[in-house]
Design a protein around this nucleic acid. Sequence first.
DNA 1: CTGAAAGCGCTTACAG
DNA 2: CTGAAAGCGCTTACAG
Lengths: 377, 377
Amino acid sequence: MPGKPKQTSGRPKAADADPPVAGRGRPPTSYDVAHLAGVSQSTVSRAFAAEAPISPPFRKKVLEAARRLHYRPNAAARSLTTNRSGVVAFFVPNIGNPIYPSVLEQFSQRLRAMDRQILLLPPVQTADEALMWLTQYRVEGLVITAASPLALSKAIARKCVGAGVPLVLFNRYFADIPVASVSCDNALGGALAAETLLAARHRRFAFIGGPEPTSADADRCAGFVARLRERGAPPPLIEKTMFSYAGGHAAGLALLARRDRPDAIFCANDLIALGVLDAARYGHRLKVPRDVSIMGFDDVPMAAWAGNALTTVRLPVEEMVERAVELLGRAMAERQEKAEVVRIAGELFVRSTTRAVPGGSGRAPALFAVGPRRANS
Amino acid sequence: MPGKPKQTSGRPKAADADPPVAGRGRPPTSYDVAHLAGVSQSTVSRAFAAEAPISPPFRKKVLEAARRLHYRPNAAARSLTTNRSGVVAFFVPNIGNPIYPSVLEQFSQRLRAMDRQILLLPPVQTADEALMWLTQYRVEGLVITAASPLALSKAIARKCVGAGVPLVLFNRYFADIPVASVSCDNALGGALAAETLLAARHRRFAFIGGPEPTSADADRCAGFVARLRERGAPPPLIEKTMFSYAGGHAAGLALLARRDRPDAIFCANDLIALGVLDAARYGHRLKVPRDVSIMGFDDVPMAAWAGNALTTVRLPVEEMVERAVELLGRAMAERQEKAEVVRIAGELFVRSTTRAVPGGSGRAPALFAVGPRRANS
DNA sequence: CTGAAAGCGCTTACAG
DNA sequence: CTGAAAGCGCTTACAG
């Protein structure tokens, strides 16, 4: 007699028991609900599908019975029939950057609204491993939030594109791989940094970037360098270090020990900048910004701390996540990946690690492409 | 003809094509592998189960065919038959605390070794919602890494225990709910803080805790207070604030404005302590530790930064995660929850926000229960 | 709109 | 050890 419950006779009939939760016997199935509601199992299934053909009274009956039994469709069974898991994977290799907790939190909120779950990609070693894992779990989409290690992220991205796994890069892109991405306008941010430091009458510039030529890093640097050149300023020194406080600290110590010590340093991110800041203050006993101005990028929570008050360009996390989820949703719906590249301007936050503009109000000048704002740390 | 592939005729036979990845047609099934390897589908299944009865040559044949097809057992199908999903859920409401990225990272590593995936609990509003979600995804276990908001975490814990969902609390416990947990020995940590401040000849103590009586918070406070009392010191002022830098900053501003200004402040965590530190330095223009000593708890990365050099008690994250995973594994294997409560001592890191011990070597005295260490920030 | 039935891709008794 | 078959709990054509 197919179509009727089998092998479930051992389970206590959770007809009106109050806490039929899980624990003891297995969770209720759609047959249990059908039985209680006096409808067919198909009808139960339809009651839980938004677009399914079912009359309001039937749906009501089913939902009421489901509520009493604490029933929810088994995700695995649903996944098996539909071949869609409802799961989005995240590759967050750079979780150490304090910007990512809020990124993850925002994704979590928005994805919940789309009824998607977040599965964390395990620390795979190769792109093949990643892809096998993605297919094993029938992951519907992948978000990569960092490009370090570059080679691995890139290989994974390439595999995903090849395999048709919807992919969105967060604050990264790969020029040679056609994939959807949402970034801060890093080049513009670099230009904003240049403007800020130029307005403060600096002349000896430096840029400290990460160890690998990620797009974010490269664009921030390029925007900075280009704007300096446009304004007729001398080219900056360019240093590489680890993408961390310790990296910034070491680089800052070295850079500030040079004869031709720069008096304005723009760092590829806040973590580096905060390391440089401490290297200047505590390593070299310099006054910031009197002796040297320092800027970061991202606006991590620590940048606003009173002891740091770091001038920086804020990553527009909220808008970025919003767009990323939008792109991901579109990529999951259509089979066809669009490879759209979104760039969102970041806002300048002038705090206390950059010299005030001479004769200015303390605000950055109005010639910026994006309205600056004096932050109340 | 049951037992043979059905409805798959439309798919290109991926016999020797090189990249049969995903993308176009569906991923290969065990039937495809069986076909290629010249064995039955059952044998394919057995080749992927560690304990299954299968001869080495057969397994080898299967695995080779699987490799060629990039085959991996469909997790949903497996979950459906075994009723076990291989998924562990994480509830990390307090992701803002910079200690959690490393916690999550360590869990990720260890869980991978156990072949478990991490699914993030969405931002549910009620315990019932959480439980329904847990059963919908047949989650095998839950890790709760924070107790804020207390009421929700507690309600979820209670539901899980009631429903038999294996649960491990990370650095939290609920006295009235029998559930496995792994914590830092917070009371001991509080005592260490008291010893450190007493040894520096302080007399006017304060404790700043979080807004809710979480176990970690309460134990740190209790250990601190008890040790002060044992040593005949006057009882500390006790303040409450948000579990954040901003909370600590506000509380520090207020506390240090008092007539009976404390000269030694122990904070429930580093984020609060760093806020207090900046309130002292930049809000009140005090010298730390000359005018006031400040201690935190956790040893977040920022505590070691040169500008902060915060004396603190380190959360033994690595050991804690190791034990937590162990407990979780046991709870998932046995049906019976043990409610074991593990406490691991945290290590004292003396940096520069506490006065050196008079006449001492700069090291904390040797009477501490746990060997102190002077950190090289 | 509603119900009976097939099928998703596995695992696991059951025979041999 | 190996294979044929049943069954996991759903979704979705297919009839009515």
